[in-house]
Simulated assay, not measured.
Amino acid sequence: MGRPEFSYEYQSKKHRIEFWKDQESLGRIYLPIDQSFDIATGIQTIDDFYFGMLVIKAGQAVSGCFHNGVLIDHKVFRAYMVRKKQGKSQIKHLKTKGKSRAGSRVRLESTKLFFEEINERLNRYSTDFAMTRWGISCGKTLWPYLFDSEVLPPFEKNDDSLYPLPFHVPQASFEALEDLYKKITSFQVTLSPEGEQLYGDIFVFTKESGSTGDDSDDW
C-alpha cells in the first residue's frame, strides 16, 4: 500500500513548502536561503548572493554579512539596559513604571544608542554591497526600537527581502551567527506527529518546537 497523497504550497516570505492532507498540516520543508524556488523550474542556486543577518537578544545583538557562503563582516553589540536588582530590562520596566530616575535615563539612552549602532552597521552593508536578502531574529516588542530609531534600517518591516529566521536562538553571539547560517542554507524539515508517522522514515527532520526566532522576546 502506497503513502497517501498530499497537497503543498510554497510560502515565499518564509521560503518554505508546507504540505498537508485533508486540511491537516503534515509538516514544512524550509528551503536553503541561498537558493530560489519556482514550481516550474525547481530549485536553483542564487548567483552573487549577499545575505545580511541580525540577531537581537537581551542587551546583546550580533550582525553579519555573508557573500556566497563566506562571512565577510560581523559585529557584536552590547548595551547596559538590565536593571540589576530585578534582572528586568528598562524597556519592560517602562510598561508599568516611569523613567524619571537617573539610572533609568542612562539605560534608555544606552538602548537608543544600541539600536542606532545596529542600524548604522546594517546600512553600511546596504551601501557597500548589493544585498540580496536579510534575515532577522528579534522579539516583536523590540521592532519599534529597531524601525523607529533615529537611524533607520535599510529595509521596511514588511519588506519582501526580510526573512524571519525560523529557529530559536539562545544568545546573540558569533557562534550562533555561524550556526544559523549553516542551518538556513540547508534543507530543514519539521513534521507534525501524523507527518512523522507517514513520512518520518524518508526525512532527516527536526521536530516541531513551537518557537521561532521572530517570536522570542527576552526583554
Rank of each mutant, 00 (worst) to 15 (best):
K112N: 10
G98R: 03
R124E: 10
R124Q: 14
K99Y: 08
K97E: 14
T96C: 01
G98H: 05
A130S: 13
T111Q: 12
R124S: 11
R133M: 14
K99L: 04
I118Y: 08
E117D: 14
K95G: 02
E116S: 10
L108I: 07
D128R: 02
K112W: 03
I118E: 07
E120W: 04
H93D: 10
F115Y: 14
L108A: 01
E120Y: 07
S104P: 03
G103W: 06
E109Y: 04
L108K: 02
T96S: 11
T96I: 04
N123I: 08
L94W: 12
K95V: 02
G135T: 10
H93E: 10
R107V: 00
N119K: 06
I91T: 11
D128I: 00
Y125L: 07
S104N: 11
T127D: 12
L113E: 15
L122G: 02
Y125S: 03
R107A: 06
A130K: 09
G98M: 00
S100R: 07
G135H: 07
E109C: 01
I118R: 04
E116T: 11
R133Y: 03
L122N: 03
A130D: 15
Y125T: 06
R133W: 01
F114T: 11
K97W: 09
R121G: 00
R105N: 10
T96E: 14
G135K: 07
I136A: 14
Y125I: 08
T96Q: 13
L108G: 11
T96W: 01
S110Y: 01
R105F: 03
N119G: 01
I136F: 13
S100Q: 12
M131R: 00
E116V: 11
M131P: 01
F129A: 09
T111W: 02
G135L: 08
L94C: 08
A102V: 07
E117H: 14
E120K: 15
T111L: 11
F129P: 02
E120G: 07
L113A: 13
L94D: 13
L113W: 13
E109N: 09
H93V: 03
T96R: 06
E116N: 11
T96H: 04
L122Q: 04
R121H: 09
W134G: 06
L122V: 03
T132Q: 11
D128L: 06
T127L: 13
E116K: 15
K97P: 01
R105V: 13
N123C: 13
E109I: 00
E120P: 00
K97Q: 14
N123H: 02
R121E: 12
K95C: 02
